[in-house]
Structures are given as C-alpha cells and as structure tokens.
Write a protein that binds this DNA or RNA. Structure first.
Lengths: 351, 351
DNA sequence: TTGTATGCGTTATCAG
DNA sequence: CTGATAACGCATACAA
C-alpha cells in the first residue's frame, strides 16, 4: 500500500497488455473479451491490486467524499446526526469527513476552506455559534459547491435545509410548564445569531402569549457559547435567581444548556423541580438518567442526518441546476415525565 | 471551486508565464525574482486561486491526511482523544479522517480498507470489540503503512502504541473499594478480546490478591459489546445479584459500563452506594453529575490523542525504517469522592 | 531567473 | 476486441 503500490500498469506489464485494456477489464467493460477479463481479474487479485482513489478523483474531478461541519462531535445530538449521515453515505459509497468548529467562527472558516477546493463534493453544515458573517459560505455556494444546512441553518443562502420544528418544540415545552401551573417561566438559550435560538425563543414567547402570560425580557437569557463555558450559565442563572420575582421554571433550549442547568442547581443545592422546574431540549440518554423526572424535547437526530445527506446527494448527483429548494422540517418529540407533585413536572432530583 | 476551478495554468496564462514559474513562485522558491513572485501572488489572490490538494496528493504520493478508527465518537473518551489528535494534526497541517466501527469487526475492516490504499498517510487505531483476527491490520502494516494503536491495542503488531496504565487504574480502583471495607467486589468488563479488558481485569485480580481476598470467577462478568446493548448489562448484573452471596461492590471498567450500571440500579430501585458500591472508569462529565459520589478512574484522553498523533507523525515523516517502538503508558487519575457513610464510597444516589 | 518536459494513476477518446 | 495518447493539476529534473 505504501512502498510497492500495485497499479494497473503493473498488471498490464505482467500480462503484456495495455493499461487501457486492464482499466476496461477492471471496470467490466463490454468491449473486453471474457478471457482477457478473467486474466486481468485474476492477476489483480493475485497482486492485490487496489485502485488509487486519489488518481481517480483527479481524473473524475470528484472526490467521492462529503464534508460535515459541526460544532462538537462530543454532543449527543450531533453525533447522532453524524451516524445518520454516515449510514446513507455508506450505502451510496461516499466517504464522510467530519470537522469541528468548536463554536469558533475562525475555525469554521478554516475548516470550510480546507474541505472545499474540490476535495469534497458537497457540504453538510451546521453553523457555529459565533458565525454571523456568512460570506465564506456564500462564496462556496456561489461557486456551485453543493451544500445542505441542518439544525443551525443560514436562511440567506438558498439551498436545501433540514431542521426540526423548533418553534413547535419550544411552544409545547413552554405550554407544558404553563399547564403544570408555572407562572414565571424563564428561558436559557443560545447565541442570538443562531436560527435555532430565534425559532425556539419565538415558540417560547408564543406559548406564553397565547396562554395569557406576559413575555418578560428579563426572563430570556442568552448564552453566547451555548454553555460550553460553564460560567456563562452561572452568570445567566444567577441573574435569574436574583430577580425580585424569582422564576419558578426554566426552559433550556439545548442539550448543553439543560445539563448545564442541572449542574448549576446541584451546585447551589437546589432541587429540580421542587425548588424550580426544568424542561429542556436534550438528546442525551444520560441527561435523562441524570434527572428521571426531566421533561425533554428530543430531536430526531438520526433522521435529520439521513435526510440532510439524501438532499445533498440530490444536489451532487443532479445534472441540471436546482432552483427549488427543500426546507425539510422534522417533528420534535416531547417526552413528558409524570410528576408526583401537582403543578410540577418531576418527582425529585438529587442534590 | 467547482465549475470554474482556478489552476496555476490560469495564472500562468494571465501572466504569460510558464506553469513551473507560477508553481515555484507560489511555493516561494529562491530561484524566482521578487517581482515575478509578487505578480504571481497578486494574481493568485485576485483570481482566488486554491491549490488542488488531490493533484498534490497524486504527485507527492501522500495525502496529508491520517485516518482514525474508533468504535464510537459518541463516547466521551473517544471524542476527547479525537480532540487531542486534531489539535496536533491541525498544527502540523494534517487532516483527520474519522471512522467509526460501531464495535463491528466487519465495519472496521471496511473502514480500514477505505482509509488505506494510499488515501491516508497513516492510521490511528483503537480496535473494535469484535476484533480478534488482526490480518487486515497485519497486511497494512506489512505494506509499510504507518500506524499507531491507542487504548485498545494489538500487541502482536510491532508499532508504537499509547495506552493508560490500565493495570494501575484497575488496581487502585479495586484497592480503594477494599480499603473502604468492601469484601465482595465484582467487576463488569468488556470483551476478553480487548487489551484493555485483560489489563484491567489483571489489575482487579492483583488488587484482590495482594489484599488477601480471593478472586472468584463468578464475580467477573464480560459484556462482549461493552454495554452498547443494555441487555448485556442486565444479564450480567442480574446474575451477579442472584449469587447466594451478593456482591457488595462493583468495579465497572469502562464509561459505558459505568453508566450502564447506574441505569440498571436505578431501574431496579437500588441505591448506589447504599445498596451497592460502584467504582468505574469514566471520562464523561455527565456521569459524574449523575452520581456525584461516584469514584472514577479518569483517562487522560486528550493527552492520549496528542501523544498518538505525535508518534504517528514520527513514523510518517521519518526517512529510515523504525525498528524501535514506543509503548507510551499514561497515568490514569483516580477521583475519590468522600463518603458520608463509613465503609462506603459515596453519599447518595437518586432512585 | 525562467521555460520545457515528464510523471504521479486513472480513464476517455480515438484509432486500428 | 485492443492499443496508443491525452488529460486531470501540480512539482521537479533538466535545459536554456
């Protein structure tokens, strides 16, 4: 594989054939006699010939691989999405190259730069929390590099996208708290740059309003890095806890924020949901174990990955230019845990 | 990037130079005049020239990328290792291609086949739980493809490897339980194929023996898929719980097994460590939150990744054949949580 | 200092 | 049915 790489040339030499004949035989071309074909195949087998994908890529001007840009793979939601992507890619013979932005705009730009320049045939992108300027993506898009956004999408770039119904998920989670009797529901959310933030906050607000509650700006706390830095969560929750009218419930709009809340409350010696109720977006199985009474909004991550990859393959493999784009919206699932307390959404939490 | 790719040829044409001059100018060769160099650079900038890595790979017979084979990225330990790998790779200009075996031998073979054939310059491998036959790796190794094993290593293949001192970690964890007063310590461990299993079980046994306790085979439970399938854990723990002399403590030898135990006990309504004590290998921050009283053996995952990547680069970039191999062993960290109960290692666990 | 020619491994086109 | 040749984009040995 390294020192003595077997090429079609070697096979050709061994069989006193031309490279073109060997190439055709290997590709099972109709214009090669069955005998020659068999000879070539046998010889290839014997020499353990492995085609060189790089040479093929250069010739075909396609690499057979797609790039994925996510913030963190160490995040249940994204690793599940990646599993979905992989499963489709695998079936279709594509290779998946994963890159992490670690929520850094700079890193996202660098990764994208690397992935592009013809080394990937397409891109599956979920924006970093810092990303406000989209020119790097706009540029690639203008050059015709197929891309599909998922979860954290860029609406200003016209292409396919896959999301869950964030509005609905947030609406239902919030309404669930209201129906459970909570009256001062705060929300802990991500960077305002992110599409998911806007949509989830909108759902939260709508649920309050359509249930006759007032939206209070002091109840909406943004964590720019989505809780990657714990102090963000501390600052946000400290300020909520210090309001004259302390919130009686919190809606956390992401996995990291949900576990971050649990961590915070444990640190403070507060019980969830005895002292305060918590509802959150979460795809982590462990988070549920962490608080068996936690009501969560689960995203169909695997499905999102599959769907995004399929849309990307459409773009890559379609001959003519696509002008009509899909905005696929998946349904979130709300897992409501029954409570032993009335007007509460859980049965207890360890302090 | 896609439809109209700018190449050195375009720059050459625009400037009425030859491609070699352009190539040299871009590589900042000493034999090009400063003026020409500047012209070329400016033109490249203007046309937004991006070198084609595939063409470069073909010519250089190196891809500038390394392959990583792990079982699951959705595993704190492995995602941390990957972050370590990436950080070094990034500094050295290498690209990292991650592939998951999902603990399947077949998938491991396929992934490796894909990664090899000169599309990667080297391999960082942690074996799947099913892997017993190493011929696929042996073959690649014999062909001279640089590889470094980490965590789950193959001792029969002579190359660098990085592990933690599994024996020591297991020894200390077990001894900690003994010192805390436990007398019937069972262990829940992975597939016997894995190096980590052998080493950790050896450490467990040694700790028992050097502390005057007998090793009981009925106390050692193997989970072939390492707890990927929860029923495995149920079967193992059920049989432990049904022993006439029920164990009073359990040492779980991996992250997944540790959380699996917690899940099991919660399901059974048992308290950890009131009803039973638990100590485990774990790199997940959430697992600690799950049970703040859990004593864990933490592996320096990030460091392992960095170290493995550095060793791999040594192999890749060294001119002459290396015959002396490093077996780097990192120190595990034991986090002991104080208990409010005597002869117990924790303070409470939610049921 | 710059240009020409060649090859990396493949496949498609065009001849035979 | 098979073979010679060119091209994908880049970088080097060799000329000039």
């Amino acid at each position: 594989m390294k020192f003595e790489a077997v090429t079609i040339k070697d096979i050709a030499k061994a069989l006193s054939l031309s490279t073109s004949t060997v190439s055709r035989a290997l590709r099972d071309s109709y214009e090669i006699s069955p005998e020659t074909k068999q000879m070539v195949l046998d010889c290839a087998e014997k020499l353990n010939y492995q085609p060189n994908p790089i040479a093929k890529s250069l010739r075909d001007r396609r690499s057979g691989s797609v790039g994925v840009v996510v913030c963190e793979i160490a995040n249940s939601f994204f690793s599940q999405v990646i599993n979905g992507i992989e499963s489709i890619a695998y079936d279709k013979g594509y290779n998946v190259i994963i890159s992490q932005s670690h929520e850094s705009y700079e890193r996202e730009v660098i990764n994208l730069k690397y992935l592009s320049s013809r080394s990937v045939d397409g891109l599956l992108v979920s924006l970093s929390t810092e990303t406000n300027d989209l020119s790097h993506l706009q540029y690639l898009h203008s050059k015709g590099l197929p891309m599909v956004f998922f979860d954290r999408v860029a609406n200003s770039i016209p292409t396919h996208q896959v999301t869950v119904d964030n509005f609905k998920g947030a609406y239902e989670a919030t309404e669930h708290l209201i129906k459970s009797g909570y009256r001062r529901i705060a929300t802990l959310t991500n960077s305002a740059y992110l599409s998911i933030t806007t949509e989830r906050v909108a759902g939260y607000k709508a649920a309050l309003e359509s249930n006759g509650q007032k939206v209070q700006d002091s109840h909406i706390k943004f964590c720019f890095y989505g809780g990657m830095i714990f102090s963000e969560i501390e600052v946000a929750l400290d300020s909520l806890m210090m309001l004259k009218q302390r919130p009686d419930a919190i809606f956390a709009t992401s996995d990291k924020l949900t576990t971050g809340c649990l961590k915070y409350f444990r640190k403070k010696g507060m019980k969830v949901p005895d002292d305060i109720a918590l509802v959150g977006f979460s795809n982590s199985e462990i988070a549920e174990m962490l608080n068996p009474s936690l009501t969560v909004v689960r995203q169909p991550a695997m499905e999102m990955g599959k769907c995004a990859m399929e849309l990307l393959l459409n773009l890559i493999e379609s001959k003519r230019k696509i002008t009509q784009f899909d905005k696929k919206v998946l349904d979130p699932e709300l897992f409501i845990r029954e409570s032993s307390r009335p007007a509460s959404i859980g049965s207890g939490f360890p302090v």
